[in-house]
Design a protein around this nucleic acid. Sequence first.
RNA 1: GGGCCUGUAGCUCAAUUGGUUAGAGCAGAGCGCUCAUAACGCUUUGGUUGGGGGUUCAAGUCCCUCCGGGCCUACCA
Length: 572
Amino acid sequence: MSRYLITSAIPYINGIKHLGNLVGSQLPADLYARYLRQRGHEVMFLCATDEHGTPAELAAAKAQQPVAEYCAEMHKVQKGLSDGFRLSFDKFGRSSSPQNRELTQHFAGRLYDAGLIEEVTERQVYSQDDGRFLPDRYIEGTCPNCGYDKARGDQCENCTKQLDPTDLIDPKSAISGSTELEVRETKHLYLRQSAMRDELNAWIDEKADWPVLTTSIAKKWLNDGDGLRDRGITRDLDWGVPVKRGDAPWPGMEGKVFYVWFDAPIEYIASAREWAEEKGLDDAAWQRWWRTDKGAEDVRYVQFMGKDNVPFHTLSFPATIMGSGEPWKLVDYIKSFNYLNYDGGQFSTSQGRGVFMDQALSILPADYWRWWLLSHAPESGDAEFTWENFQQSVNKDLADVLGNFVSRVTKFCRSKFGTEIPSGGSYGQAETDLIEELTRRVRAYETHMDNIDIRKAAMELRATWVAGNEYLQSTAPWAAYKEDPDRAAAIVRLSLNLIRVYAVLSHPFIPDAADQMLAAMHCADDSWPDDIAAALDVLPAGHAFDVPDVLFRKITDDERDDWQARFSGVRD
RNA sequence: GGGCCUGUAGCUCAAUUGGUUAGAGCAGAGCGCUCAUAACGCUUUGGUUGGGGGUUCAAGUCCCUCCGGGCCUACCA
């Protein structure tokens, strides 16, 4: 048994996430966590909401709520949806927690002591009417290069030229439209990442087994131009972790907060602490996952994220940890994902284009989404969701191949032998062949799951389902029953046991259906089939079972057309 | 502009890192079965691997070039 620490990129607080966000981190992380638990490993699976920053303040203002109240409410909503998708977090924390505040301030203090924090006075745009400094992209104006009148302060979307907000002609606030802007001096803290460039480079170089997507992004940032640049880690905002050195005040930084990208990854650690405190456990309980001097030296730490999050996880956060000089656990493996597109374009939170988590659950159970999303995870490149593909995959894989197998076996048994596992008959070559094939396939499935090759794992799992249908077709118990009922009984006995094995193997992908299958078999034994022959012998003759309801109903053409029309436009 | 990824059957993806005749699933066609959610099984049609050039005994894989798609480019998170 090993110990695995698993974190999923933490979703931002300002709204409900779409399926692209879900498949880019939380869902694959859950698959991996569930699998490892089933294999008998000790797992700590953490996630949280990322609650600080300008967009959270603006979203709260739009909702006419105090930002703390807004975040508390949205956290509950996101927690409810993650439960709905059966994401099995040990703790779904909040980056606004007291635990994170203390840890963030602690890291800042350590980095300051190590000489890795620099105070920089810079000039930023302040909006009088908004009463706040504006991030570059919240300033709009006319592009000095191409004349586009909706250019943003960081870049012109029309001609792609990178801009400084002061370059804009007729600049105005993108929030209020106000033109009452002025440039003010303000002091900020910078994390001296550049001082750790060699250390980070050497560390990334060790990670030859990481996805190319992960290492190439890290190397680019490390070596592009003048190399890794220092990064501002504070902002002039109200909502966030107040700037302190540990628990001591930070002279000159009063009224400022840490930048979300400084405190957000620290929440990975803080959520473990939230978990421990919630359970009434002592510090040692969470430190054994996070401190290599307190038990975490044998922990394997795996992070899941979309490609947009890679720089922060390969550079900024490791720099924070390394720079602290304390033995915090560094990530061992980063699994990153490309994007999931929606029907020919991008999912868009702002335009409401695509399917969002709440909408998805309102039309179909979580397992449908889990199966399609995971079996099409954007691992090697961007992937695309279409309703036709979704309907075909789900109907074929879940309803026809798996669901129908359960249905045909249980119903056949009920009609010929009743709802107890029949006795009599013996196994022959067909059973030997099936066990041989399943053994080979389950071992391959394990390899793919161990490697977090998600699409390959899904294909192999599906192949084990197909093997059951092939077995039934070749042994034809309905025909055998007429000549030799004992032989039919043996076939059915094995097939009913196969349902239990499928439930166990399928559980990481489709946990609800797996539970229904186990419940129908009146069985609580969900132990992993290390030995297929033995696993197919768990349910003895005479053991009662139920014929379950249809596990997966099919998606009709009318539903597909209806949904396609409903989700193409703007979210209401 | 720079960097990275990508282009393989109608669709979604593989191809043990340069090694036999490029494979699966879906869709299509044919046959079989009748236990089952009109489900299942078997067989089968589809490919000048985006175009062109090069290296090599050997190229989907390496190099050059052109064409297409995507991402990143540090103040969105």
